[in-house]
Simulated scan of single mutants.
Amino acid sequence: MPEIFPVIDLTPWFEGGGDERAEVAKQVDEALRTSGILLVTGHRVPSELRDRTRAVAREFFRLPADVKGRSSIAFGGRGWIAPRFAEAEGYEGTASMAPDLKESFSFGADRVTGDDAVDARWFRPNTWPAEVPGMRPVVTEYIERMHALSDELMSLCAVALGLGADFFASYLDHPTYGFNFNRYPPVDPTRPPAPGQFNVAPHTDFGTITVLDREPGPGGLQVYTSEDTWVDAPYVPEALTVNIGDLLARWTGDRWHATRHRVLPPQASAPQDDLISLVYFYETNHNALIESMEPPIGRTSFPSVLSHEYLRSRLASIAPKAKH
């Protein structure tokens, strides 16, 4: 397995002493300085919960389109996003690309702040389709697990940067986040992908860390390397895939990299593949001020940004454009 995709066991972080925790932190720093992506085992997210969450996702996606349409949303909302709906922007917004082939169901943070304007944008109620009554309890449990793991990973990141384990805590006591079921459908002979069309177009994530539970398949995740090549990300059944987003890259002054990645379209070599990914996008408190860390941690000084303003601008850059 290429070293650009290290598999890091978190067990010593959870159960070990100072030296063991420091060694895990060292491995994380090395991975995020070189590739921006790693696989973690020993994460304490039960496999049966992952299986149950994927099962309710499949139950929803199997519904007829008109039934799923009752949960349909505009871009950036909470609910179902139909296949080929969202326009994908080229990396850095330089080129318009064909719509992603995936279909999704989106959730987000819903613990209100009491500020109506803030809550309407960042802490809206989630959509729970009546046709899948088991969705709410399972997804709620999964999100709670992902939130706890992400907080732990941010503590680990702080130690990896030579900071106290609680450095990020005050930025994360009422965070925004997103959670998606992404379905990557099988080959459709009646609607082949357009040239250059993907299940998920090349992009970097926007927030702090992303925790991905995925299924194997030839139409899967690829990562852009420092050698300017696309390579398949390895699959380890018990592992979760973790990468950082642009906000954390800015925060660390580009010590760590937000890695460009994509999901290939359906492949002729596996025409029946029908894959489900569970994707948790962690961010910060909506009003967190993100300032680049100074040397020797940081290497580049970015202008300070408020988390919600930065995320809003990035989301606007990939929103579907009106057709004229």
Rank of each mutant, 00 (worst) to 15 (best):
P2S: 15
D9V: 04
G18N: 14
D19C: 08
E20Q: 14
K26D: 12
Q27T: 10
S35H: 15
I37G: 09
T41R: 11
E48S: 15
R52D: 13
A55V: 02
A55G: 03
E59P: 07
F60A: 01
F60I: 03
A65R: 05
F75H: 06
F75C: 04
F75I: 08
G76R: 02
A82W: 04
A82R: 04
R84F: 09
G90D: 06
E92W: 15
E103I: 08
E103S: 04
G108I: 04
D110V: 02
A117H: 03
A117S: 11
W122C: 04
F123S: 01
R124K: 15
P125Y: 06
P125C: 03
N126R: 06
P129W: 00
V132S: 00
P133F: 05
Y142D: 03
M146L: 05
H147P: 11
A148G: 12
A148R: 09
V159T: 10
V159S: 03
L163Y: 00
L163K: 06
L163E: 06
D166H: 12
L172M: 11
N180D: 07
N182Y: 08
Y184E: 07
P185G: 04
P186L: 05
D188S: 02
P189G: 10
P192E: 05
A194P: 01
Q197Y: 07
V200L: 15
A201G: 11
P202C: 12
D205S: 05
F206C: 11
G207M: 05
T210G: 00
V211Y: 07
P218H: 13
G219Q: 08
G220E: 06
T229A: 14
T229N: 14
W230R: 10
W230E: 00
D232H: 12
Y235S: 07
Y235K: 05
T241E: 02
N243W: 02
I244E: 03
L247V: 13
W251R: 01
G253L: 08
H257A: 13
H257L: 15
R262W: 05
L264R: 06
L264E: 09
A268M: 02
P271C: 06
S277A: 15
F281E: 00
T284W: 04
H286R: 00
N287I: 10
A288W: 10
M293V: 14
P296H: 11
G298W: 10
P303V: 10
S304F: 05
S307A: 07
E309H: 11
Y310K: 03
Y310R: 07
S313R: 09
A316W: 01
S317N: 01
P320M: 12
K321V: 03
K321I: 03
K323T: 12
